[in-house]
């Protein structure tokens, strides 16, 4: 459809800069990373040019790695569930606001989305840390004798991830719920469905694209939220992404690369499961 600019060569020229930049600095590095993940760890250079599968084999056999993987899956599942359980009612509420109210709600969601994760994680450090608000207030009141560390635990990491990722879920769901024609629900009522059944049989299935995209976004962001996990989980509570970081700081590049791809594979598997369970296609139509 080169209706607008018949000079189609000019149009190609327009596509070229983003293609080149992303090709060179997104596609190439990732291919390189994949390549490195099959090389041998080296003490002196980035890697030794000896193909091996050992990096992957270790991840999926070593009991420590397996423990971390299991823990990663568990906290991802919990964060996903909580995001959906809290996010859906909020989005449902927002979708029923006036256009103006919804706009305000979305603006309110935007601020935290844009504030750096380190700041938001720090908010929790300031609240939950040994010298944080809860601890110092409780000591001050005399409820506890010595400062208590509420950080570096599963709960702290989950809470942090949940609060950081909730806005993504809410925005995605709100957008999806607002596009659902209220006439569908009204049609369900007219057919004798109670509000609750109308919700289950009409609204919920129709919002499945929003649920799916929100859950996928949260999955990817949970799995890669290194800084949040590092600040709130500390040295004690690590997830898979922390191991990528640790491998880098110990200069084991092929190991770090393999861990990265393990992480990506896990993310893709979860994404596939989400697609299968939520089935957004039934609303969007195939293709």
């Amino acid at each position: 459809m080169n209706r607008v600019l018949p000079a189609s060569s000019l149009l190609y020229a327009v596509a070229l800069p983003p293609l080149v930049i992303l090709g060179l600095f997104f596609v190439v590095p990732l291919c390189y990373l994949l390549f490195v993940s099959f090389m041998t760890n080296s003490g002196t250079s980035l890697f030794d040019l000896e193909p091996t599968l050992i990096n992957y084999a270790e991840i999926f056999t070593d009991s420590f790695y397996l423990l971390i993987i299991r823990r990663t899956l568990l906290s991802t599942a919990i964060v996903l569930a909580l995001c959906l359980l809290i996010g859906y009612p909020v989005a449902f509420y927002a979708a029923r606001l006036s256009a103006r109210g919804r706009m305000i709600m979305l603006m309110v969601m935007m601020v935290p989305l844009m504030v750096s994760n380190v700041v938001r994680a720090y908010g929790w450090v300031a609240i939950l840390g040994r010298r944080g608000l809860v601890s110092s207030t409780l000591t001050g009141v005399g409820l506890i004798e010595r400062p208590v560390q509420y950080l570096y635990s599963f709960e702290a990491v989950t809470l942090g991830l949940l609060t950081i990722l909730l806005p993504f879920m809410i925005v995605s769901l709100t957008n999806s719920l607002t596009t659902i024609d209220t006439r569908y629900t009204e049609a369900a009522y007219s057919l004798g469905a109670s509000p609750w059944r109308a919700f289950l049989r009409v609204t919920l299935p129709l919002s499945s694209p929003g649920i799916a995209s929100g859950l996928m976004l949260v999955t990817f962001l949970t799995l890669s939220a290194y800084v949040t996990i590092a600040l709130l989980g500390g040295p004690r509570y690590k997830l898979l992404v922390s191991l990528v970081f640790d491998s880098v700081t110990t200069f084991r590049w092929p190991r770090a690369a393999a861990l990265s791809f393990a992480l990506l594979i896990i993310a893709l598997i979860i994404a596939v499961i989400i697609q299968l369970v939520v089935r957004p296609n039934r609303v969007q139509g195939k293709g």
């Binding site: 983003p18 992303l22 600095f25 990373l33 799995l223 990528v244 880098v248």
Partner: peptide, 27 residues
């Protein structure tokens, strides 16, 4: 393809992208 490529970093694990770039930059 271009749209997918441009949008990809939005969901792509940022730390992994950083690692991949670091390896490239070092090389």
């Amino acid at each position: 393809f271009l749209q997918m490529l441009i949008m990809a970093p939005l969901v792509f694990p940022a730390l992994i992208l950083g690692l991949a770039l670091l390896l490239l930059y070092k090389t």
